[in-house]
Design a protein around this nucleic acid. Structure first.
Length: 639
RNA sequence: GCCGGCGUAGCUCAGGGGCAGAGCGAGGCACUCGUAAUGCCUAGGUCGUGGGUUCAAAUCCCACCGCCGGCUCCA
């Protein structure tokens, strides 16, 4: 019998081939291990040892243990479904773990699962957990496996088996009367799982392929500790409270309605004010940094979109054309062809480069109905777009400046935590290797110089050039894609863009597209969720709400205060309703207005204000002039 | 686009073959009030749209539109 060596920490053990990891741990007196790690690969206690190994035990404290336990829960869920709806009726797809739990894609013959079923399934799962069935693991030859799963009626599993590569082990896991094709790892018995809850139900194409059948996906979340599970559920509640669609309605910021059209946004007065503040700031910053602002049309001749290549590659996302004087026109899905037309309006010298054009350009894209989502995913949106045309020598500096600009602007909106992704050359790319090398090098150097960590998505770039994406982390930890800096080796060729160099010859420039917010609509959505609707003073559509205690007696003074503040650019609203003071304060609080000014006899007499701040509460009395000065100071500092 | 759920007053929602409801909001009246909801009265709905079943449809069935959760897509 062949002896194998297993190293665990400082211990080494000689074992027979086929001994399981669980047996090894037991022999070494290692208790409570959930599984083991070999390199970066997780194995479980049921896994037989076939070669010399160095194993690190995984305990409940280790984050990897969650993955093992969650995986078993997805099997327990599958068994529960089979027991409830019949072993021959439930056909299993895939059942992997997720970042916070697990799911299983299933098809239940003759029954469509609905939300009410989740409770039943959960109950059955708890039963299986309580019975504490031991799990078994088996290995099979391909033919045997195909035969077994064909007999079980598991058509999707058979398909998976046929996709497993030659030479790979085909393993089964199961408990009680349940067997599943599975790579593992698992906990050794159904009683060893943590706290869980089934959360929701959704459709999912088999293998993510729209031409394949649609299965039902049941999602669950799972943690070792009840508190962790509850914390996660609270997180969902919190996210729900911050939902920008809900806040947009409550704060009267925007409206999306059927009568106008799906995915088309109406900005209500308060939302429009917020947007204006944001856009004014954006424009000022761009002018400061040497960008030139332009305005371009909403539609363009088909020939333009032919030249740009959009009609060849992007047409499914474009709104249908309209005919104008026997020619086709398209509503723009992007601004680039127009900006290029601006660039090409005269011969450009190298002395003009880098040439930076910027526009808050509203584009329209035909998005599939199922993906629309509040302001985050719409059919008409405003890109904070810019195109930078430069020489090869300038590329590095341009990218660095652009990235630094983007990050600083996002910081001004209160975002501190950024994730940067660089996407490099894909297989079917255009452009020369030198171009790609220069561009990718510039992207890396820029990120490093700005001092950000980054991940590289090898081969994840567009065919026409590499890019940097910046994601921001919001107040409750979610990541949102915002900025993009994208090289384009395609359009300069297609549009035959040129500049005259110091050698008096014509050269092809480099061009980058870039956006900082990405889309103004989406960015406003992210801001609302980040701040839970309580926007910073400089962005708040209404900064001050004035409440005269008696509109009759104190209304005149309140109007005077209103005019004084408005003259100084402060966004102020006055509440003259014949309502109780408390009621009006409550309304202002619910509208999340940063400052509430109460004026009554005392204030009228000494020309002061009683100041109440959202969050800090009653701040006491201030003179009007002092208050205005303080407010303007805070606004200018973007507090 | 696909799967499932949902669509009732401006908003949040109840009702589920037999008279269309509540709270908030809106308008009116009274109260004249000092830091998170004063009371009373009134108006407001083709029950998403169209078709069908039925003596009778908000309610049951079909189609469409929209929304929600996902899948997919995002050169």
């Amino acid at each position: 019998m062949e002896a194998l060596r297993v190293r665990i920490r400082d211990k080494e053990l000689q074992v027979e081939r086929g001994t399981t990891l669980g047996e090894v741990f037991k022999a070494l007196g290692i208790k409570d291990a959930i599984g083991g790690k070999v390199g970066s690969e997780l194995i479980d206690l049921l896994t037989p040892i076939r070669e010399d190994l160095e194993v690190t035990p995984v305990f409940r404290e280790d984050p990897e243990s969650l993955d093992i336990m969650r995986h078993t829960l997805s099997h327990i869920m599958a068994q529960a479904l089979k027991e409830l709806y019949g072993y021959d009726k439930v056909h299993l797809g895939v059942g992997p773990t997720t970042e916070e739990g697990f799911y299983y894609d299933v098809e239940v013959e003759g029954h469509t699962l609905s939300a009410e079923d989740l409770g039943k399934v959960e109950e059955k799962m708890r039963e299986i957990v309580k019975r504490d069935y031991p799990l078994f693991r088996k290995e099979l030859e391909r033919e045997e496996a195909v035969k077994l799963f064909s007999q079980l009626g598991e058509k999707y599993k058979v398909e998976i088996i046929n996709r497993i590569e030659e030479g790979e082990t085909i393993s089964l896991y199961g408990q009680d009367g349940f067997t599943d094709l599975c790579k593992g790892p698992h906990v050794p018995s159904t009683g060893m799982v943590g706290e869980f809850k089934l959360t929701h139900l959704a459709g999912a194409y088999w293998l993510g392929d729209a031409s394949r059948p649609m299965l039902q996906r049941i999602y669950g979340i799972a943690f070792w500790k009840k508190e962790e599970l509850e914390e996660r559920l609270r997180f969902y509640e919190e996210a729900k409270k911050r939902d920008h669609r809900k806040l947009g309605k409550e704060l009267e910021l925007f409206l999306i309605e059927e009568e106008v059209g799906a995915g088309l946004v109406l900005w209500l007065p308060k939302g429009a004010m917020l947007r204006k503040t944001l856009e004014d700031y954006w424009k000022e910053e761009h002018i400061k940094r040497g960008y030139q602002l332009v305005y371009t049309p909403h539609v363009g001749n088909a020939r333009l979109w032919q030249t740009s290549g959009h009609l060849d590659y992007y047409k499914p996302n474009m709104f249908s054309p309209m005919e104008v004087e026997k020619e086709e026109y398209f509503v723009k899905p992007m601004n680039c062809p127009f900006h290029i037309a601006v660039y090409k309006s005269k011969i450009r010298s190298y002395r003009e480069l880098p040439f930076k054009l910027a526009e808050l350009g509203t584009v329209y894209r035909y998005e599939m109905s199922g993906v629309l989502h509040g302001l985050m995913r719409v059919r008409g949106f405003t890109q904070d777009d810019a195109h930078i045309v430069c020489t090869p020598e300038q590329v590095e500096e341009v990218i660095e400046e652009t990235l630094e600009f983007a990050v600083n602007m996002l910081k001004d909106f209160g975002f501190e935590d950024f994730r940067v992704y660089i996407s490099t050359k894909p297989k079917d790319a255009i452009g020369s290797p030198e171009q790609w090398e220069l561009a990718e090098g510039a992207l890396r150097k820029a990120v490093e110089k700005v001092g950000l960590d980054y991940e590289v998505d090898e081969g994840g770039g567009a065919f026409y050039g590499p890019k940097i994406d910046v994601k921001i982390r919001d107040a409750i930890g979610r990541l949102w894609q915002c900025s993009t800096i994208q090289f384009d080796f395609n359009l300069p060729e297609r549009f035959d863009m040129e500049y005259v160099g110091p050698d008096n010859r014509r050269h092809r420039p480099y061009m980058v597209h870039r956006a900082i917010f990405g889309s103004v609509e989406r960015f406003v959505g992210v801001l609302l969720e980040h701040y839970a609707g309580l926007l910073p003073l400089w962005l708040a559509p209404v900064q001050v709400r004035l409440i005269p205690i008696s509109p009759d007696k104190h209304g005149a003074y309140a109007k005077e205060v209103e005019a004084y503040l408005r003259d100084r650019g402060i966004r102020v609203e006055i509440d003259l309703r014949e309502e109780r003071l408390n009621a009006r304060i409550r309304d202002a609080e619910l509208q999340k207005v940063p400052y509430i000014l109460v004026v009554g006899d005392r204030e009228v007499e000494n020309r002061s204000l009683s100041v109440r701040h959202k969050g800090e509460g009653n701040l006491g009395s201030m003179y009007l002039e002092d208050f205005a000065r303080m407010l303007l100071e805070k606004v200018s500092k973007r507090e």
